[in-house]
């Protein structure tokens, strides 16, 4: 009796070992990683871009999260970082320390949507003050019934659902409503998987949740989006028009890609970003986000062509900022 399988295996292993020194990427690849919120847009762009390039360029897209994406970006491992919030001061320092310069490009808007169960007939609109009363840290353990927030609402338990603390959505919502990023009550049902929030609201008549518009749109029949009262006193439903004319505020936010300035020298990266800014708007609508104004895409393209590096934020998140204005700012490093 011979033991052939082992011989074969040993040969294979020897071959594999002998090949190890040759390990080096050859084909032109665009590497993207970062926010799972931006992922659907980048995925759509990458899909179309690769079809157009007929497989000559490879695009990889990861979902390490905005923070995880910036970590890899500032180590120089990837060409583009997807971000659902602007780069933070600590991340700016990490990039500066590694000598990595970046071009900040807004690519779409997301409308954070506040939803309730369709059976919650008592509520159609909500003010920022009411949202704050529900979600601020001081509400923890105290605000547990709907009528505590607004006496016109019934004496029913208030069941809150929201994204987990690692999500950019959580960061933005807390910044916009509570005035400080990551400052929130802790006693709500949190999940990194927005589908869990969708199911939570669907199952409970007294539930209230917030998440990105992309999760509301396909489930619109199963829940009710609330109008949010803006600073001018208008109650506005989340919609592309409301986001674009600035009336759906403060819950609309821009989404970004950060391009490594050194990668722009690679033709595949340059072409991919140009494709992103020109073919992106149609794809953004298709994946249920809100495209920027034509004007904004034009300025973004010009900034990219000019190689304008740095962030318009300076490491501090801002709410209610016009993207056009942001793009014209001096880039900070």
């Amino acid at each position: 009796m011979k033991f052939r399988p082992f011989n074969t295996m040993l040969t294979l292993a020897a071959l594999a070992l002998s090949a190890a020194p040759h390990i080096a990427a050859a084909q032109s690849t665009v590497k993207v990683d970062g926010s799972s919120t931006v992922f659907p847009i980048t995925e759509a762009v990458a899909e179309e871009f690769q079809i157009q390039k007929r497989g000559k360029v490879r695009v990889t897209v990861g979902i390490a999260g905005t923070g995880g994406g910036f970590k890899r970006f500032c180590r120089g491992e990837i060409d583009i970082s997807d971000a659902s919030r602007p780069i933070l001061a600590a991340e700016m320092q990490a990039c500066a320390a590694a000598g990595i310069k970046y071009i900040e490009l807004p690519v779409a808007y997301d409308a954070l949507t506040v939803v309730v169960n369709p059976k919650a007939t008592w509520v159609d609109q909500i003010t920022v003050a009411e949202l704050k009363k529900m979600w601020e840290p001081a509400a923890q353990g105290k605000i547990t019934r709907w009528n505590q927030v607004n006496p016109k609402w019934p004496n029913a338990p208030l069941k809150l659902f929201g994204p987990g603390a690692d999500s950019g959505t959580f960061d933005y919502f807390t910044e916009a409503i509570n005035g400080k990023s990551k400052s929130s009550r802790g006693d709500f049902t949190a999940s990194e998987d927005d589908n869990v929030l969708v199911q939570g609201v669907e199952a409970d008549a007294n539930a209230l949740a917030y998440f990105g518009y992309a999760y509301y749109a396909p489930n619109a029949a199963r829940m009710k989006a609330l109008k949010v009262v803006n600073a001018k006193g208008q109650a506005v439903l989340p919609s592309a028009a409301g986001v674009l004319d600035g009336s759906y505020e403060p819950l609309s936010r821009p989404l970004f890609i950060y391009v490594n300035a050194a990668s722009v020298a690679k033709p595949e990266v340059r072409e991919f970003v140009e494709f992103y800014l020109t073919k992106g708007p149609a794809l953004v609508t298709e994946v249920k986000y809100v495209p920027l104004s034509a004007e904004a895409y034009k300025i973004a393209s010009a900034n990219f062509k000019a190689g304008k590096t740095g962030t318009g934020f300076g490491g501090v998140p801002e709410v209610g900022l016009k993207v056009e204005e942001l793009l014209k700012r001096e880039g900070k490093h």
């Binding site: 589908n195 990105g212 489930n219």
Partner: peptide, 23 residues
């Protein structure tokens, strides 16, 4: 050739995970 060894990749469980979290 063994260039495939250095290629980026995805696997079945990750593809599933990605799909489960889609809206």
């Amino acid at each position: 050739n063994f260039t495939w060894l250095s290629d980026p990749f995805t696997v079945m469980p990750i593809q599933m995970f990605n799909w489960v979290s889609r809206p």
